[in-house]
C-alpha cells in the first residue's frame, strides 16, 4: 500500500510523516516520529500504556489509525512537562515513588493529566475511575492516587497565585 503524508501537530510542533494507511498512531509516533514514550502493552485498547492526548482528549493510540490524526493535535508524555521542568503530576509521581518498572507510567500520566484538565479537584473515586483504563502491575495504584491528588492541589495553588 502506498504511503501517505500525515501532517499534524505533535507536542506543539508541526510534523509531517510518511506512513502507510494501516499504521496506528502509536506506531507512527514511536517508529516515525521517534517518540517512544507511549508504550505498547497490548495493542488492543485494554492496558492504557499507549495513552496520548488527541485534541486534548485521552485516547488509546494503539486503536487510532495514524491518518485519523491528520490536521489534529497530539500530545505525548514527551510533551507533558517542558525540557527543563517536570509537570506537577510528573514531579509528584517521582516524589511519591510511584514508578517501579515504569512501563505503565507514561500512559497513566497522560490519563491523569486529562483528568485534571476536566476536574481541577477530583475526588478519590474520580481519580480511580480516571485511571481505570490503565493497568499497572507493580504499584497497586495507592501511591498513584496519592500523587495525583497532591498534583491537583499543586496546580490549583499555582493557578491561584
Amino acid at each position: 500500500m502506498p504511503k501517505q503524508i500525515l501532517s499534524f501537530t505533535v507536542n506543539g510542533d508541526k510534523v509531517d510523516l510518511l506512513v502507510p494507511p494501516y499504521v496506528t498512531l502509536l506506531d507512527a509516533l514511536r517508529d516515525e516520529a521517534g517518540l517512544t514514550g507511549p508504550k505498547e502493552g497490548c495493542g488492543t485498547g485494554d492496558c492504557g500504556a499507549c495513552t496520548v492526548h488527541l485534541d486534548g482528549k485521552p485516547v488509546a493510540s494503539c486503536l487510532v489509525l495514524a491518518l485519523q490524526a491528520r490536521g489534529r493535535s497530539v500530545r505525548t508524555i514527551e510533551g507533558l512537562g517542558t525540557a527543563t521542568a517536570l509537570h506537577p503530576l510528573q514531579d509528584a509521581f517521582v516524589r511519591h515513588g510511584v514508578p517501579q518498572c515504569g512501563f505503565c507510567i507514561p500512559g497513566v500520566l497522560m490519563a491523569a493529566a486529562a483528568l485534571l484538565e476536566e476536574h481541577a479537584a477530583p475526588t478519590e473515586e474520580q481519580i480511580r475511575y480516571g485511571i481505570a483504563g490503565n493497568l499497572c502491575r507493580c504499584t497497586g495504584y495507592t501511591k498513584m492516587v496519592a500523587a495525583i491528588t497532591e498534583a491537583a492541589g499543586m496546580i490549583k495553588k499555582g493557578a491561584a497565585r
Binding site: G37, G102, P106
Partner: peptide
Amino acid sequence: DGPDKVTGK
C-alpha cells in the same frame, strides 16, 4: 530513575 521514567525517556 524516577525523572526518566515519568518523562518517557
